[in-house]
């Protein structure tokens, strides 16, 4: 497994390079938008990757509540974190694309707004993980992930309806996409998927390592020679959990 990592890394780098070449040189220039349309090859694959990762997070969260397997919990947290990174890319590249094309940075349309809400929900998920201690975080975070997943269709519907009531400047593009564009898009998506996998992999290894260190420190806290006051006094976090059941 460990040998596979550098191989995958090299492969991903090659793919990403090839994908950039495809996106900037090979793909045909769009008629109305011009070259700026090439942002599409970064924006859309990032969105798909983010959604996929959030879906993985949901599956892992449900699985954790059923099986209580700490490895599944690590997978849930890793997919959420990398998902937020890709979602950030979507939210940053979106306005950069919108500005030259629509003349505005942002519009409260369905897709933009629900992606923003999705991002907010998963940022709150990561915050919850950061602010709760590691004994309780998995179950709490899993519950929040399920709530988030239930929320998304409602968010989409409500905003969709809200927008149809209040007409917006018509958003261009649309229509059918040139098959050559499709090909470039898929190549880019594959490259970004590999890249996401790579990041998840490293983050997962980091998380496993963090847990190992934590375990070692826990043992140390119990056996160390400098064991003066109780763990509760030295670690206010534990004391708080005791008092705040």
């Amino acid at each position: 497994m460990k040998r596979l990592f550098p191989i995958l890394a090299v492969l991903t780098a090659l793919m990403l390079g090839y994908a950039v070449y495809q996106a900037l040189v090979v793909a045909p220039t769009e008629r109305t938008m011009g070259d700026v349309q090439r942002i599409f090859y970064y924006h859309v694959p990032s969105a798909w990757t983010a959604f996929l990762l959030f879906f993985v997070n949901l599956v892992a969260s449900v699985a954790y509540l059923v099986k209580r397997n700490p490895k599944v919990d690590a997978l849930a947290m890793v997919s959420a974190e990398v998902g937020v990174v890709f979602c950030t890319v979507v939210l940053v590249t979106g306005p950069i694309w919108a500005r030259p094309v629509w003349g505005i940075w942002w519009t409260w349309d369905v897709r933009l707004t629900s992606t923003l809400v999705l991002w907010l929900i998963y940022v709150s998920y990561l915050l919850l993980r950061r602010f709760s201690d590691s004994a309780q975080a998995p179950a709490l975070a899993a519950a929040l992930a399920i709530f988030g997943a239930l929320d998304i269709p409602l968010v989409y519907f409500s905003i969709w309806f809200f927008r149809t009531q209040h007409p917006q400047p018509v958003i261009g593009g649309g229509g059918s996409i040139d098959p050559r564009m499709w090909r470039v898009l898929l190549i880019n998506w594959m490259a970004f998927l590999c890249f996401a996998l790579l990041m998840c992999w490293s983050r997962y290894r980091l998380e496993t390592m963090r847990r190992e260190v934590e375990e070692a420190q826990a043992l140390e806290s119990l056996l160390g020679d400098d064991r003066g006051p109780s763990a509760e006094i030295r670690n206010p976090k534990v004391a708080l959990n005791r008092s705040g059941q």
């Binding site: 070259d35 990174v85 590249t93």
Partner: peptide, 25 residues
Amino acid sequence: MNSIKFLYSAYAATWTIHLLYIGSL
């Protein structure tokens, strides 16, 4: 065309975000 700078800044932003994340890792 002026819009080309938006294209480059979008690509740059993407990689800045990814590199920042990798840096934090």
